[in-house]
Design a protein around this nucleic acid. Structure first.
Lengths: 353, 353
DNA sequence: GTGAAAGCGCTAACAT
DNA sequence: ATGTTAGCGCTTTCAC
């Protein structure tokens, strides 16, 4: 009963094969691989030629047993959120010229999933982790960071154990409020993501945005009006339904995320209303959704690529020197104005020209 | 010059620690870990207790050196395409109850990037690979499959070296044409993705969709009208511009992918036209984009989750038995009708009720 | 500058 | 059923 095809792949080329072929020691090959000190130019050339001729690639898993795996893990809360690929691009861009390879964990919701993914990454010997908008407790994050170099993206709150990279969500919210006020709006509502856990609440971007909104409203002498749902399409839909049922409707809505605005649009559509004629709508993240022609949503642009770029840079630094003091990077968002916002009370100026 | 914090993480708990703590051999622990034969129930209990008490987790990288890493790699062409997460959900769902962990490669465009990612996965000792809609040559795919168990998703064309899971793209295209014809359309255009390489062209879903479109048109006694651009928003925009410039405009457009339809909508918006009043629009993939209220796009639903589920199942089978004959799974798509398609020549029936 | 030898954490073959 | 031993492919002392 021999199978038709050879089920056994040809033995992989190892460092021993290279050493033999180049007539040097495995140590020498290892040194060349790592650009380490202690190999003459002549030797380097010999070894490189042998590597070339044999098509040798080091087995990262084996390297990891003693040194590094040259692997970096990125944990994203949700692959579906079109904002996260931006961050990822920033990370891979920065790592492109290095020997490091990036792998993503599967999208994870909640602390349990996060723990599973981070543990899996640590168990695979990854050299460093980038955690994007994690919801785990700070204690948990610090435990991870104690085990492996870690950078946390999109979560406020400093720690000596890990580096952080965030956008200034308070400033972003202020941009939106400022824009709407300038257009003449005074009844501006906000749909926020309700964070249940009070301890980490303040560290999350959603809380910062809500806070920034409240402060900006106050600064403009206006009364804030916050509806608490979640950063999902459904959350936007429910939030909008609640706002539309108010005796005194807001003239503008600031959704905490683009995806939330999609739910708002759904509710508006059901009610036979449109933006910006019946309601101005602004959101956050400036994802591809916001740029779609039929959507054309005013939205806050987080410098996603830069977030990722900085995260990768900090991570590489920390892999080189685990003892270095932790760094915090804060980037400034900008506002991208599109057709979903306009002066209030206009004579039902529709979208079509 | 001692750094303020301890830069050295506490030594990891190893199998030796567990063995010592449970007063057994490391072999015994290993057997328990793998549920292998040769350990009494009593011993299993002892070992499990020790594992529990010490918080031991095996180092996947080290396991891989002898046996398996319990890691499966998934390569997606583009994280931004909202269709792919469906497949991923199917994969992770199927693997959830196993010891296997899924990692994603960063989105890769083109053969070179694909080679880089697959090599990186192989070098990390991954036990199996799922390649989604790869563009690499068949030779290349078979080389990968010869090295590591591989399942190819979303690419037609069989191979003895790897299993395949696809949707029936020809049938999907026929669904669209049938739907539009039933509504009364006769001038139905198609925007396709131009594949440059002729050898693999026939294997790609885009070619199958174009082919299915042509065959369905012919079957209905209609003349096909294909514009070749690419499966991108820009491709849709350019394709639509070309179609709108025709002396005799089509009354319906079948875009090869949802994202293409977004570009069509952009062009329509610029021209002051709307769907379905001026033009019916249908697409493929039934992503979240299609379901957005302001978009509401008729689209072919590929059974994304089932694609992933089947891929994972086949992969596990192949990991167990590398010699087994390769399998091909083909799933049937369905059509989700939304507001972007209607009978032609209607009196500018707008979207709003 | 170079290489021999030890060992990373684990599994597999081979005792017993 | 259990333990002993020899590696997996690589990096790292530590000799020379």
């Amino acid at each position: 009963m021999t199978p038709p095809t050879q089920p056994t792949p040809p033995r992989r080329v190892t460092i021993v094969d290279v050493a033999r072929h180049a007539q040097v020691s495995t140590t020498a090959v290892s040194k060349v691989l790592r650009n380490a000190y202690g190999a003459s130019p002549e030797m380097r050339a010999r070894v490189r030629r042998a590597i070339e001729e044999l098509g040798y690639r080091p087995l990262a898993a084996a390297r990891g047993l003693r040194g590094r795996t040259y692997t970096v893990g990125v944990m994203l809360p949700d692959i579906r959120n079109p904002f996260f690929p931006e961050i990822l691009d920033g990370i891979t861009g920065r790592l492109a010229d290095t020997d490091y390879q990036v792998f993503l964990g599967p999208g994870c919701n909640g602390e349990k999933e996060e723990a599973r993914v981070t543990e899996a990454m640590i168990d695979r010997g990854m050299d460093g982790l980038v955690l994007v908008a994690p919801v785990s407790s700070r204690t948990r994050l610090e435990a991870v960071a104690a085990t492996v170099p870690t950078v946390v993206v999109g979560r406020h709150g400093h720690s000596a154990a890990y580096d952080t990279v965030v956008d200034d969500d308070v400033a972003g919210a202020a941009l939106v409020v400022g824009h709407l006020v300038e257009l003449g709006h005074r009844r501006i509502a906000h749909i926020e993501h309700r964070e249940t856990d009070p301890t980490r609440a303040a560290e999350m971007p959603n809380a910062q945005r809500a806070d920034g909104y409240r402060r900006a409203m106050r600064a403009h002498g206006l009364v804030d009006d916050v509806v608490s749902t979640s950063y999902t399409q459904r959350g936007g839909y429910e939030g909008a339904r609640e706002l539309l049922a108010r005796p005194q409707r807001p003239t503008a809505v600031f959704a905490g995320a683009d995806i939330v605005a999609m739910g708002v649009l759904e509710a508006l559509s059901e009610a036979g209303l449109t933006t910006p004629g019946d309601l101005s709508l602004a959101a956050y993240d400036n994802t591809a959704l916001a740029a779609l022609a039929p959507v054309s949503l005013t939205s806050v642009d987080q410098a996603g690529r830069q977030l990722g770029d900085n995260a990768a840079r900090l991570l590489l630094d920390r892999i080189e020197d685990r003892g270095k003091p932790s760094a915090q990077v804060k980037l400034s968002p900008t506002l991208v104005v599109r057709r979903s916002t306009a002066a209030p009370g206009q004579l039902r100026l529709q979208r079509r020209p």
